[in-house]
Every structure is written in C-alpha cells, then in structure tokens.
Write a protein that binds this DNA or RNA. Structure first.
Lengths: 245, 245
DNA sequence: TATTGAACAACACGTAACGTGCTGATTTAT
DNA sequence: ATAAATCAGCACGTTACGTGTTGTTCAATA
C-alpha cells in the first residue's frame, strides 16, 4: 500500500495529477486510512502504469477511461484510429514545414516581409494539390498532371527550393537588361538547369508547362514566377535563336 | 467599414473569435457606431489576415501580438524557431507512430494485449537511441554502433517489423521442439533471412551482435527477442553443425 | 504521551483559444 | 413605428493539470 506521496515519487507523476485522476474517477485508491488519506494498492499502480502508457500513445484521459473499461475488443480499433491521427498530423506538419521554409527563403532573399507572398504560399498549401493544378488542366494531359503531382514541392529538397527562389529573384532584379547579353543568357541557363533538376528532363512536359504558364493570369502554383519573369525568359530564348541564325 | 458580422462572413472567422481578439487587444476595431457597435476598417482587415497567416504557421496569439508589434528584425528568428518546433514535433510523431505500429502488431500476432510488451516498447522509444545502445558497448566497436544506429527501427519498413515480430513469435511458440528437426531448421532460417534483410549482411556485425545478445540480461533493445529465443536459435545452429559432421 | 514537522485532503483560481448560450440594446427593413 | 435581425457584454464550459492556501492527519522524536 502506497500513500499518494510515495506513489508520486515511485512513478514520477505529480501528486496533483493523481489528485486529478482520482477526481475524474480514472484512478481511485482502493482504500483509505481512518483520517481519509488515500492508499494505493499494487493493482492501482498497474492501472496507473497502463494509463501512462496510453497517455504516451496520445489518447485523451476520456478515451483512456473508455479503453480501460471496455475490454480487448476495441483495442485494435483504438490504435488504428490513433495511427490515423498521427499520420494526418504528420502530413499537416510536412506541409507547414514547407510553407515556413518558403517564407523563410522569401524573407532571406527579398530582404523584407512580403505579405502577398506569404498569403500566396499559405493559399498554395491550404488548397489540396489537386485544386492547385486545376488551372493547368487545359494545357496538360492526365499523365502530365499526374507526373507533376507526384513531384510537387513536397518532394523537393530545401536546397532546390532555395535555389529556385534565388534564381527567379535574380531574374526579377534584371528584367530590363538586354536579352541578348551574356548576363541574360547566364540567368536563363541557371533557371533552365534548376527547372530541369526539379521537374525532370521531360522535354514535352516542360514545353506544355511553359505553354500553360504563358497563358495564365498571375498564377501562384509556380511561385514565385510571374508574367514578367516568363516574358523575360521567353525573350532571351528568342534572342538566342536569332543569334544562331 | 465592416460590421463584425460582415467581417465574419467575409473571412470565415467566427464572431466570437473576433470578439476574443478584441478582448485580448489583438485586433481592436478602429471605430465604433454611436450605439457602440464595432466597425472594422480595411487596415483592420489586413491585420486580421496577417494574424490568420501567423496562426496557420503555428504561432500562439501571444507570439503573434509580439511579432506584429515588433518590426521586421525578429521575423527570421521567429520563423526559424517555429521550424525547429515543427521538426521536433515531427520526430516525436515518427517515434510515436513506430511505437503504435509495434503495439498493433503485437496484439495482432499474440491475439491479446500484453502490457509487458507495451511497456517495453514505450521504454524503448522513450530513451534516446544512444542510451538504448549503451548496453551493447562492451561487445560492439564504434563503427558497428554507428552502423546500427543508422539503421535503427525508424528506417525499417512496416513490412519488416511485421515479419520480424511474426518470425520471433513463431519461434516462441515452438521453443521445445527438437532443434534438429526440419521445422526448427526452417524457423531459424526464416529468422536468419529476416535478420540479414534488416541488419544487412555484415557477417562480423551479426556475429558481434549475437555475442552481445547472449550475454545480456533480458534486454529490450531487440524486442521482442528474449533469452529463450536466443538459446533456441543457438541450439539449432549447434544441431546443424553436428549434422554436418 | 505530548509535541512538532512533514505529508495530506480539499478547495480555488489560472492556463489557451475559443464554443455555446443568454439578456438586453441597437440597427435595419418594412 | 414596429418587427426582425444583428449586436455587445457577460458567464460558464472545455483539457490536463500547475500553483497556492488552509485546515487536518500522520509519523517521528522528546
């Protein structure tokens, strides 16, 4: 028989917590002294350990009460449910991490907080990938859509995202230089390299995506590219072709 | 100028929430009607949107107040902190998922809830991997320790964990059969296959681990193996050697 | 056996971010 | 002007306890 203080020391659970478990009927001491002090039996200790185990697994005290009162039957179900929950939360955190990274890079590169960009990123991540791609459906076929979805931003490395943002930022800072200049050619080459690295070297896919981008209104799905950047790249390509002739 | 109801409809935020934000001074309407009804300006709407963005990023309302009041300087810091938090939470969930999977399999395979096993799993996951391996340090060298840590349970597939538990469970159910029998040889062969699949085919490493396991008191680091299982496997190996001669 | 210090029970209030009512006042539509 | 809709302001509820208080009981010592 343990007093509440001993039990607390043995298990590392605070007295207040045991107090609370008693109060809500989760763990009631199996006997008391004449004066009313609580005495916990070995069985009570076992029950406490089970409660702690279930708590570690992420169940609420309410759920723990249910699980411990009902028998084995619901166990698998409870654990599967908990697994589902954990997986959903993991997905949410994945998305959140990417969003935070994007915002961090945007501040780092642009040197200031651009709320428009932050909203774009959040919107981008809040809608599910299916929806985000809907705007491209006139230009891409089903296979291509699928391919893009498979390699969406979730699968890009931090390094890739950072480079992608950097190269586009560089272009934005040089929109008015001569498209035929050495510098312009270099910028577009960097962009092309990164694009191929991230979206594979499927020529047709890149071409179709390009078509789509040119016809879009200010889309955010390929943040942080915008019309200006697209036009600049286009003009550099044209200048290059001219030069060849 | 929006009344609280219009603002609520436009942004999807409940009136009670705006009520609360007013109460804690996070978003105060910039004017009021004669009768005291709140009127929100465009600026107020912008502020609300920023609050929502920051909330999406996982900041508390207290932190949001700080961030919005202090200027740009702390932004990067806040976001980095948030990223840290998100990453730690992801790790926690990873560990939890593995623990839940282990428990799920143990119930599935043993057909009942084995609290000892559940406690073992939780203990195993609660201590960090470094500590868990300390008990092997007399038998393994640094390189080997490192190798095991790199491929610890986190990197095993669900399939692997499931098979590993199944094969050991099979052995536990047949501890007293003749080590020289066909059945025994089969069991140990399955075990060996799975062990090699999971721990690579580094002969020396497997040998050293085996040494360690034999000398350990009931360890839990290679749950659910125990002394009995180890002895059985050993005896089958010996029987095999005998047979060869 | 009396005393004293430690442990205890029971209660109250606080936490974060609102949800869910409630009453009485104000606005809007008719 | 009157009805209907909206609003402000308040209070209590939620989760899993932490922190602090007061009065009581236990255990060890004199």
């Amino acid at each position: 028989m343990y007093t509440i203080g001993k039990l607390s020391k043995n298990t590392g659970v605070t007295v207040r917590t045991l107090d609370y478990y008693d109060e809500i009927g989760l763990i009631k001491p199996s006997s008391k002294t004449e004066g009313g002090h609580r005495l916990y039996s070995e069985d009570d200790v076992m029950r406490l350990e089970r409660v702690l185990a279930l708590k570690y697994m992420g169940f609420s005290l309410e759920q723990i009460k249910d699980i411990l009162e009902n028998s084995t039957s619901t166990w698998q179900e409870s654990i599967q449910q908990q697994l589902e929950l954990v997986k959903r939360e993991q997905e949410r955190l994945q998305v959140l991490e990417q969003a935070l990274l994007g915002i961090s890079y945007s501040i780092e590169i642009e040197g200031e907080i651009n709320w428009k960009i932050i909203f774009s990123i959040i919107q981008l991540y809040q809608q599910d990938p299916e929806d985000a791609l809907q705007q491209y459906k006139d230009y891409l076929n089903d296979d291509e859509m699928k391919k893009i979805m498979d390699m969406n931003v979730q699968n890009m490395s931090e390094e890739d995202i950072r480079n992608w943002m950097k190269v586009i930022h560089d272009i934005k800072n040089n929109l008015n230089i001569n498209p035929a200049s050495e510098k312009a050619q270099q910028l577009v080459e960097s962009w092309l390299n990164q694009a191929e690295k991230m979206y594979g070297n499927d020529e047709k896919l890149l071409g179709d995506m390009w078509q789509a981008l040119q016809n879009l209104k200010e889309g955010i799905a390929f943040y942080p590219m915008n019309k200006d950047v697209i036009q600049f790249i286009e003009s550099v390509f044209i200048a290059k072709e001219e030069f060849k002739k």
